[in-house]
């Protein structure tokens, strides 16, 4: 069984889709027919990423719908974080990292030289794989973003933002008495939730979450998943996860990466229950990974 659809082959046996219905097929990615997202917020086309001479992403094309959660799954080192960092141009900070191809947000190419990276990042927030609270107090950590962007006109307003963000990240009860203590003194899971609170405090339109629950216990995980569900109503969310169950619980669409290639993408139920590509089947059933 071949897993690839040549871009111009509309008559492939297992993907009898007309180009107009599914849109053009990009690269070798298997795309579930008839489910191409409608309100596409973020569009990646032929994205290649190189770290020095080493290529980490190969010809990735992916549409991310608005007001939905897209999860990225795949074995370790397959390029999930790399793809995520392309979306808010965090890869710019890595010196020998090079990105080619096109990524558009609301139709605007984010790699356009005239684009303001700082403005982009305030609209596309990110929660990193490893918790990275600033060596400041818990309060200051969350207040950092709103301060920089002047989101609060008064002290009280700032305080409201901080408290609300901490509440939504499910951290408020644990830190309400230690807002002045350093954020680096929290436990690993608390730090991760602090970073989530910090990211949502600036109300980004797109939120990138890199394994946000990897250090959390089931209860905290449930809180974060609830938060994601709630944020989905307003924002566009991409989440990286190693847990198929989590992908099933929180996401509407799923993309499976393997060795730097986007192997298959489509509605979460399809990818998890009836994957088309052999590699996806192997990964879902635990044979690779």
């Amino acid at each position: 069984m071949t897993v690839s659809i040549p871009p111009d082959n509309t008559g492939a046996p297992h993907a009898p889709v007309s180009a107009s219905a599914a849109g053009p097929a990009y690269g070798e990615t298997v795309r579930t027919p008839d489910t191409v997202p409608r309100d596409v917020r973020l569009r990646a086309r032929h994205v290649d990423v190189f770290y020095g001479d080493k290529q980490a992403l190969f010809d990735v094309s992916l549409d991310i719908p608005e007001k939905a959660v897209t999860s990225l799954i795949g074995p370790s080192g397959c390029g999930k974080t790399t793809f995520l960092r392309c979306v808010n141009r965090m890869n710019d900070t890595i010196e020998d990292c090079r990105v080619t191809g096109e990524i558009t947000l609301d139709g605007q190419n984010i790699y356009d030289p005239s684009l303001d990276v700082v403005e982009l990042r305030s609209r596309v927030g990110m929660v990193f794989q490893k918790p990275n609270p600033f060596p400041k107090s818990v309060y200051e950590n969350v207040a950092y973003g709103p301060r920089i962007h002047g989101l609060a006109r008064s002290r009280a307003e700032l305080e409201d933002i901080v408290v609300a963000s901490l509440r939504r990240a499910g951290l408020w009860e644990e830190v309400k008495d230690r807002l002045r203590e350093p954020g680096t003194g929290l436990s690993g899971g608390q730090q991760q939730r602090l970073c989530i609170a910090r990211a949502i405090a600036v109300s980004p339109e797109v939120i990138l979450m890199d394994e946000p629950c990897s250090a959390l216990d089931p209860i905290a995980t449930a809180v974060i998943e609830e938060l994601i569900d709630e944020l989905r109503l307003l924002y566009t969310i991409i989440i990286v996860t190693h847990s198929m169950q989590q992908a099933a619980r929180v996401s509407q669409r799923t993309a499976f990466f393997h060795l730097g290639r986007l192997v298959e993408e489509g509605p979460t139920e399809v990818i998890l229950r009836h994957p088309q590509a052999k590699k996806t089947q192997d990964y879902i059933t635990g044979r690779i990974g």
Binding site: R121, F128, F134
Partner: peptide
Amino acid sequence: PLSLRDGSLGLGATESETIRRV
């Protein structure tokens, strides 16, 4: 740690804000 710098830049802080504040 570089991750602190990334954290600040990722929130939309400019290079010099990141240097001054973090």
